[in-house]
Amino acid sequence: MAALALGAVSPFSFAQHGELGLVTPPVRLDDASLVDQNGSKRLLNELLRQRITALQTVYTGCGTICPLQGALFSAVQERIPGIRARHPVQLLSVGIDPLSDSPLALHAWLARFQAGPAWHAATPTLTDVDRMRLTLSGSKPPLGNIADHATQVYCFDANAMLRWRSAELPRVDDICDVLGALART
């Protein structure tokens, strides 16, 4: 049922790239050590497990596209209370510049977009960041400059499995539809 619902989400969003839409089979990211906005060390799969998660990659020093991503998650956050869910729904902004995306910078990022308790931020270690970005994107080529990072949103089920990759800068409705579909399973 969830696969049908996920597949029905705005086919227009998937028309431009081959690695978009439903991830079949679902993928579990290798666990990575992260530091969250409070300075606490966490494991990625610990953050994802038992929650339905929309994840985006950002870097807090970005002044161009990342603020649009923050505004996107802010709009999704407003709609989370309307999602009927068996598991909590959360948003996770992952900083991809471990040298600059400190807990203080992550905290300021969340405050800038009035993040509520269901929106978290964390940064992987320098050794884990590229591996994590490659797995999220589903691509094999080397990653470029962080300024060229993806603006996709990645949705995970409550088993910490990557189930959906969006188009670049997806629509709020698409993200909420996928979160809703995952939340009902």
Rank of each mutant, 00 (worst) to 15 (best):
A54V: 05
G61D: 15
R51F: 01
C66N: 10
H87T: 01
V58H: 03
W109V: 06
C62N: 14
D97A: 14
A54R: 08
I52M: 00
Q77T: 05
P67N: 08
L91P: 02
T60Q: 09
L99Y: 12
T53W: 02
P98I: 14
E78C: 04
F73N: 01
R112E: 13
A71E: 13
V58F: 07
C66Q: 10
G61I: 13
S100Y: 13
L55P: 11
I96M: 05
Q77A: 09
Q77L: 03
L99D: 14
R84H: 11
S93V: 07
R86Q: 10
L104V: 14
Q50K: 08
A111M: 07
S100I: 11
I65Y: 13
A85F: 00
A54P: 02
P103A: 05
T60P: 03
A108Q: 14
P81R: 03
T64L: 15
R51L: 00
T60E: 15
G82P: 06
V58R: 01
E78T: 11
V76Q: 07
W109Q: 06
G63I: 15
G95N: 12
G70A: 09
Q50V: 00
L68V: 08
L92A: 04
L110G: 01
V89L: 03
L68P: 00
V94F: 06
S93G: 11
P88L: 02
S93A: 15
S93T: 11
A75T: 02
C66A: 13
A115M: 06
R79M: 03
G61Y: 15
L55G: 09
P81L: 04
C66W: 04
I52N: 01
G95D: 09
I80W: 04
R86W: 01
W109E: 02
F113L: 08
Y59D: 11
W109T: 04
S93W: 08
I80D: 07
H87P: 00
L68R: 12
S102Q: 08
C66V: 15
F113C: 05
I65F: 12
D101K: 06
Y59Q: 07
P67A: 08
V76L: 05
Q114W: 00
T57A: 07
L72D: 01
R84Y: 05
G63E: 15
A75I: 00
F113T: 05
G82S: 12
V89F: 02
H87D: 00
D97V: 12
D101T: 09
L92N: 09
P81V: 05
G116N: 07
I83G: 05
R86K: 12
I65W: 09
R49T: 12
G82N: 13
S93Y: 06
P98Y: 11
C66F: 09
S74T: 03
R51Y: 03
F73I: 04
C62I: 14
